[in-house]
Design a protein around this nucleic acid. Structure first.
Lengths: 242, 242
DNA sequence: CGAACATTTGACGGGCTTCAAAAGTCGTGG
DNA sequence: CCACGACTTTTGAAGCCCGTCAAATGTTCG
């Protein structure tokens, strides 16, 4: 057996650094700086449906998704959920809130059982002083987030449901897709209703459009959480994704 | 006459610093730093309809609207304009593009005859070194822009046209509104079609909803570019604006 | 295995889009 | 300053698509 070094299991080290090394904010750091970050981190577990925070609570933490997924949402005037962000492994949340004293304006809850790494405001600010390169990363991230919101606006203002849903499927296939031969298999952490709330539609409409995609041989649905993409070219075409 | 100091007209100084002092990026600067900025600025005029830039052009400038207004937009798959930003006096554009080497992904054109102040990439980067406080302002600005995009998503995903348009009118009354007694008078730089493209609707729908607002005695329309708001309370109510 | 929950499917109604035409507005040149 | 033409806006009518409500089917998890 290769157990000689079990007391020094590389995997335990690996796991320790895990949430830190996989987010873009920190992934460029060397071993030494990485350790500085690690020491400041709290680990938390949330069960499916539990809230990370609610509107009005003071924003005090940087949240990093280590395992699982999380949604960020508000309610529209007609009482429907509007999902703004879907976060998965390596995504983070709350960084910009730490540059001002302020309160959350939306809800966040776990979509499945989820592990998070968090940094308090104090620790985060201290870190910025110790490792100034993180500042640049934050600006780059803000820029990405703006681009993605701009894209989401373009998606949700479109009247065309197939366009919206095709965009959604492509977006998710990049995050969750696993290539299996010609096909791409996606396992969603979210329900039809969540998809609908993300796209500003109803669950029935999402359901109908997915069935139609299946009828067109673009996808095959397996159970409620799995989709196999058969014809990604045609899906790209529908999504006007060049 | 009060012409003794005409050779030293305070207004000419005022005008020189104008575009610089009125944008949030620079408004906190002292006289000395302000002068550093001023020296680097180019002034440009654009006629109504002229393009500031188009997709694919390299992003090389920070744009500041000194007088007039500008729209930033893309086209949807069905060939309709989707307006992302409407900028007026004191707004600026292109700052985040200067942190990366990149190209514009949208169009920008003048909505009326417009004066702009611009800074080249080189001058902007030099300025950041000379006046580091500007960095913080940029992050604060990015945060605001994210908030406003999030709000726009909430607006455009709403099915309710009166909600969307009420939000739009309130948004504009803050920028363009002039209080006249009980009323607020707004002079739009944009057409009905532009409003529609901003809200993801058609010009007919916007037209009909404005007529309905007029019928409800919330507004009075005068010509095509002027609206007087009679009952801002009810408009706020419709916009779910607390 | 069964109950709670999620998804699918169908039928219907309403509101926005589309197409079309009329009315209004704006700018230009005489 | 007025008149004309181009353009924008308004209004009307019809059609389609999504939302809503309801019921059936499927799925998940204790």
């Amino acid at each position: 057996m290769e157990n000689q070094t079990l007391h020094h299991d590389p995997c335990s080290i690996c796991k320790e650094t895990y949430c830190v090394s996989k987010i873009s904010l920190f992934s460029h750091l060397d071993r030494e700086d990485m350790t500085k970050v690690l020491k400041k981190i709290d680990r938390r577990k949330y069960k499916k449906g539990e809230f990370l925070f609610r509107p009005g609570e003071t924003a005090e933490r940087l949240w990093i998704v280590n395992e699982g997924s999380v949604k960020v949402f508000r309610y529209t005037i007609d009482g429907k959920e509007q999902i703004l962000y879907l976060l998965t492994e390596g995504d983070f949340l709350g960084d910009l809130n730490l540059f001002k004293e302020n309160r959350y304006e939306y809800y966040s809850s776990a979509l499945e059982n989820t592990r998070l790494c968090t940094l308090t405001r104090k620790n985060f600010q201290q870190l910025l002083l110790e490792v100034p390169t993180i500042n640049e990363k934050i600006l780059a991230y803000a820029y990405d987030r703006i681009s993605s919101l701009e894209k989401q606006i373009q998606t949700v203002t479109s009247k065309d449901v197939s366009f919206r849903l095709a965009n959604f499927l492509l977006h998710f296939s990049r995050h969750f897709g696993i290539k299996k031969g010609e096909e791409i298999e996606i396992t969603f952490p979210i329900s039809r209703e969540d998809i609908a709330n993300y796209l500003g539609l109803t669950r029935e409409t999402v359901s109908r459009q997915l069935s139609q995609f299946q009828g067109m041989n673009l996808i095959i649905m397996e159970g409620n959480k799995k989709v196999r993409i058969l014809d990604i070219e045609e899906l790209r075409h529908l999504a006007a994704d060049a």
